[in-house]
Amino acid sequence: MNHGQQSSDGKHDDDAALSDFLASLMDYTPTIPDELVEHYLAKSGFQCPDVRLTRLVAVATQKFVAEVASDALQHCKARQGAVVKDKREKQQKDKRLILTMEDLSKALRECGVNVKHQEYFADSPSTGMDPASREDQ
């Protein structure tokens, strides 16, 4: 009896926390714009006029992307640390933190996304150039 009372109180607390959180989303602007989320939700068939739900999805996506990015960042830092230990002279060049496919695919694999990236992919004119020439451009 007492336990049931507690659990119902807990449920009330959860409800209150959830509604408070949803209300606080009205003030919070996620990095992913509402229009983008609305567009893709509409594309998938989900429809709801409540902007708080759109924000909830935006925040959830932002959290997911941020987690993946921070995972990739850890991979990047770990790789750089290993490289730096080997080649002291290239330390200057590799200090920049670059989001690469290599790190990203490792981070995404943890989330269950298998990214097959090319071993070599020149995706921009400046790819593979010396940093000096890159700065010239």
């Binding site: 998938s44 992307v65 990015a69 960042l73 990214v115 992919f121």
Partner: peptide
Amino acid sequence: GFQTFQQSALEALSDIAVRYIENIG
């Protein structure tokens, strides 16, 4: 904390983010 990115990596990540939204929907 990233300073720069590969174009392909950014494209892949944004594609996955979009799919995430669509999956939620």
